[in-house]
Design a binder for these strands. Structure first.
Length: 262
DNA sequence: CGAGGTACCTGACAGC
DNA sequence: TGCTGTCAGGTACCTC
């Protein structure tokens, strides 16, 4: 599932498109692709960056493309005649160097939208801080504003902190030794600081390893390898060889170790 | 207001 | 074989 490290990996791959001009746009899925995409024909891509789990293409005429992969979104950079991108195709962007990039999505949750600077800012304003840009002390302070919240649910709340999804929330809580069902008010300040330190450590390792590839349909050209380092997500036993518990928190599957996490 | 629940969507898989 | 039900999960939207 694309979370911060996976989106970061995709953004780094997409940066090779900087300098290219979009010559033509084809839309195959109206639910996923913004109808206003024709507006960006002849726009030049001058930057690609990430904010939260969103991918932002900056164009030369004050327009922006805001793409979200959700679970199964995927960008493909290729040439005409390559048929591998035909499956689950939502849209094609034809570039001035005769290459093209496509947006594909199986579950059709993702989206690619055209935005003005103002619309983009309005959208990004809803996001909380980037976990790699705040200190553990700042994180602990944020947490203490919501003592009633279940800690795992709060980690997934993008208005609270961004980029963390179901995988890295579970991993972070395991490495910090915190039960995912704990209310924030029950967790000591030291533990909250440790949680953020562990989250930062895991996110950085995952970025270095091009993210996690746990599912055929979300893989980043097969490059991610963090799945080999997962402690609890998708695992039967924790690194200490304890049997893991599987529960549901906020409608999401959650694995934890009742011995290592308190 | 914040917290919690649910719909969206398709494919994989288990069970009969 | 072929059907049905369940699960996967990021986010918008709803309710309490």
């Amino acid at each position: 599932m694309p979370e911060l490290p996976e989106v970061e990996t995709v953004v780094r791959q997409l940066q090779k498109l900087v300098g290219r001009t979009i010559k033509k746009v084809e839309i195959f899925d109206n639910k996923v692709m913004d109808q206003r995409l024709h507006k960006i024909v002849n726009s030049k891509i001058i930057g690609v960056r990430r904010r939260a789990k969103s991918i932002i293409f900056e164009l030369n005429n004050d327009n922006y493309l805001l793409a979200h992969l959700r679970m199964t979104g995927h960008f493909h950079h290729t040439t005409k005649g390559d048929d591998s991108y035909q499956k689950y195709l939502a849209g094609i962007f034809h570039l001035d160097d005769k290459t093209l990039f496509t947006y594909n999505t199986i579950r059709r949750f993702g989206s690619v939208n055209v935005m003005t600077k103002k619309e983009l800012e309005g959208h990004l304003n809803k996001y909380g801080p980037e976990p790699l840009e705040i200190s553990p002390q700042q994180f602990a302070k944020l947490c203490e504003k919501s003592p009633q919240s279940v800690i795992k649910s709060k980690l997934l709340d993008q208005s609270f902190i961004v980029g963390i999804g179901n995988i890295y929330a579970q991993e972070g809580l395991y490495h910090a030794g915190i039960l995912p069902t704990r209310k924030i008010g029950e967790v000591s300040r030291e533990k909250l600081i440790l949680l953020h330190q562990e989250m930062q450590r895991i996110l950085k390792i995952a970025i270095k390893n091009n993210g996690t590839t746990v599912d055929n349909y979300t893989h980043l050209d097969g490059k991610g390898s963090f799945q080999n380092m997962l402690a609890v997500y998708n695992q039967e036993k924790c690194p200490q060889k304890h049997e893991l518990q599987k529960i549901n928190i906020g409608g999401r599957g959650t694995s934890y170790c009742k011995i290592c996490q308190r």
